[in-house]
Simulated scan of single mutants.
Amino acid sequence: MTHHDTAPADTVTQAPGGVDPRSAGPEGPFPTQEQPDQPGLTGEMTPTPDHGEESWVRRHRLTGRKALITGGDSGIGRAIAIAYAREGADVAIAHLAEEQDDADETRRLVEAEGRTAATFAVDLTDEQATVELVAAAREALGGLDILIPNAAYQRQRDGIENMEVAEVERVFHTNLVSTIVLAREAVPHMPPGSSIIVTTSIQASEPSPGLLDYAMTKAALVAFAQALAQDLAEKGIRVNAVAPGPIWTPLIPATGFPADKVAEFGQDTPLGRAGQPAELAGAYVYLASDESSYVTGAVIPVTGGRPF
């Protein structure tokens, strides 16, 4: 088993007090690039996102835990899977069939840490398939005590007058309805001490007109986490959320943004750059660990300084 102790020297500038956050990742601008549709694929991105393959340091905070991560093949989901495996958790990931290559790579990375990994090709807009996913993940891992509804769909919208109901429904079912179904199916089998961690977004509090329907779902996920946290507290299950800002994942070149928006992605943050998936993983580890035993109904913003 490989032990990763330090971040790559060529991507991190060490300041006297720690890593300088202004230069802890590529500062941009990004090369012009676009992927025709979602799901976006990691191998077609330049530069390749940092998921923590070399930088995440294990501290054994999730030993013996069992996690289901949707959208776990790439981007934030892959970063969570790598961090969880290094912290001692077994991991199941859900992905679309078109993302099998990325899912296989995430599985390899988890198994390289000596942990159990399972991958499931699932369309989360299909309720029965989502129900079966939770059952299959529990069987593959021998239980379930961490649920991370992370999969999301977004497309750039060109005005309210051009919005198609079918597209809006796809966004709502992928981002929001599937989260409800996943929690509904998982909670009866989750022991006290379990965690549900949803991925919301800076879009929940700072919505962009071009992402109207996506922003609506992310705002709803904040309410979901806060309400469900109160409901499940008596069961000893904590519910929290992480709100990413601009993070360099396959979702970005596959959203249909104008070329200049992709090139300048994240440069409007106070830290002046986009975040890397690995920079989100710590929030998910903290919220799943015993270190956050008094934290429920919370939202942790990881936004490069943009106010949430």
Rank of each mutant, 00 (worst) to 15 (best):
H3F: 11
D5P: 03
T6Q: 10
A7N: 04
P8S: 10
Q14S: 08
A15R: 04
P21V: 10
A24D: 15
G25W: 07
E27T: 14
G28A: 09
G28C: 05
T32W: 07
Q33V: 12
Q35N: 10
P49N: 12
D50F: 14
H51Q: 09
E54V: 10
E54M: 12
R65A: 01
K66G: 05
L68G: 02
G72V: 13
R78A: 06
R78L: 09
A81F: 01
R86W: 10
E87M: 02
D90T: 08
V91F: 03
A92H: 03
I93W: 02
I93T: 09
H95A: 02
A97N: 05
D101M: 09
D102H: 03
E105P: 04
A112D: 12
E113T: 11
A117L: 07
A118I: 10
T119I: 14
A121Q: 05
D123F: 01
L124Y: 04
Q128D: 13
Q128Y: 03
E132K: 04
V134H: 01
V134Y: 00
A135H: 15
R138N: 10
L147V: 07
A152Q: 02
Q154V: 11
R157M: 13
G159T: 02
N162Y: 09
M163H: 08
M163V: 12
A166M: 05
V168C: 11
V168S: 15
L176C: 15
V181N: 09
A183T: 06
E185Q: 15
A186Y: 02
P192T: 09
T200Y: 00
A204N: 03
A204F: 00
S205C: 11
G210Q: 01
Y214G: 04
A219N: 15
A219E: 11
A225Q: 02
Q230N: 14
Q230V: 10
Q230F: 13
A241K: 00
A241Y: 00
V242P: 00
P244L: 15
P244N: 09
F265C: 05
Q267I: 08
Q267K: 15
G272F: 03
G275A: 10
P277S: 10
A278R: 14
L280Y: 03
A281V: 07
A288C: 06
D290N: 13
I300L: 15
G304C: 13
P307L: 09
